[in-house]
Simulated scan of single mutants.
Amino acid sequence: MVNAINERQKAILELAKNQGFVATEQLADLLNVTPQTIRRDINTLCGQGFMQRFHGGAGQANSVENEAYHHRLHAFVDAKRRIAANVAKHVPNGSSLFLNIGTTTELVAKALVNHKNLKVVTNNLHVATILSNNDDCEVLIAGGLLRQRDGGIIGPATTEFIERFRLDFGIIGVSGIDSDGSLLDFDYQETLNAKAIIGSSRETILVADHSKFGRRAMSRFGHLSQIDWLFTDMDLPDDFLNLASAGGVGVKICCGAE
């Protein structure tokens, strides 16, 4: 079971996100605690998959493997709920939409449970289960290989299934957004599915909390300029704001309930 992280540990994560690496002594000075306290915090964060330990400090988790699903369920959950609520307001009744793999898209599904006359295509078993509670929602589940660790369905058959449709909205999550606007994920097969959703949607919505900006992952599936709307929880850093503006991307900052 994942324990909630405290405010100091959140600050350590934010510094690591901005700097790439944080030294133990530097953190002790900045946060006005002992090095021993910082080491305990780093041990906690590394043990939960949020960081990777290096000599003298720690840095962001590597770009090769994503955090465990149960860790991601509890990371930035309030921000993800705000994003999901705002996306649900954006999607009218009587819509057709894709929802892909990800903990944020699962919260979007929960926010859509009371919508009427929805048609949903998904490669996420959790999304399908959530929306099964909506009697006025028709869910089509992609075939393919079940990834048991997170309920995702991937593979060539999944991509082929997605490409059969042309839907109103494609709502996608992302593991990271690079400084050049590249949309990134850890699983090559998953990126093929996300790319297919972008190509098969009349309007594409990217749901990404602030931790995704500048985060590294090894597989690229698109660019920020291909997105119609970005729903996030904090003001964008200037470089990402400039990329969104140049690409004509609408940005919705989900600071609280509306």
Rank of each mutant, 00 (worst) to 15 (best):
K80F: 08
F169Y: 15
T129Y: 05
A58S: 15
N100E: 15
C137H: 01
T191C: 15
F21L: 06
L112R: 09
T204I: 14
G155V: 05
H71G: 13
N134E: 05
L140Q: 04
V251N: 03
L241S: 15
Q226M: 12
A68L: 14
K10T: 08
G256E: 15
Q9N: 04
S219N: 12
R166G: 05
N193Q: 11
R39D: 15
L140I: 03
D235M: 06
L45F: 11
V87S: 06
D180A: 07
V22Y: 04
L13F: 02
I162L: 13
L99V: 10
G248V: 05
Q19R: 14
K119I: 06
K195C: 11
T232Y: 05
A208F: 08
F186A: 14
E14F: 04
N114H: 11
Q148W: 07
V139Q: 02
R81I: 10
E160F: 06
L146V: 13
E138V: 14
H55M: 06
A196I: 12
D136W: 06
T122S: 09
L27A: 10
T159K: 13
F240C: 04
S175H: 10
S182M: 04
W229N: 01
F98G: 09
E138T: 14
I141Y: 00
R216L: 10
S245Q: 13
Q36C: 01
G57D: 12
K119R: 11
A16H: 03
D150H: 04
D29Q: 12
L167E: 10
V127M: 01
I172E: 04
Q148F: 10
N124R: 01
V2Q: 14
C254L: 03
T158R: 08
H126A: 14
S225A: 13
R164L: 10
E203H: 10
V120E: 00
H223E: 15
K119H: 11
G176I: 02
A196N: 10
G173T: 04
N93H: 14
L224F: 02
E25N: 11
H55R: 15
N43E: 13
A58Y: 13
Q26E: 15
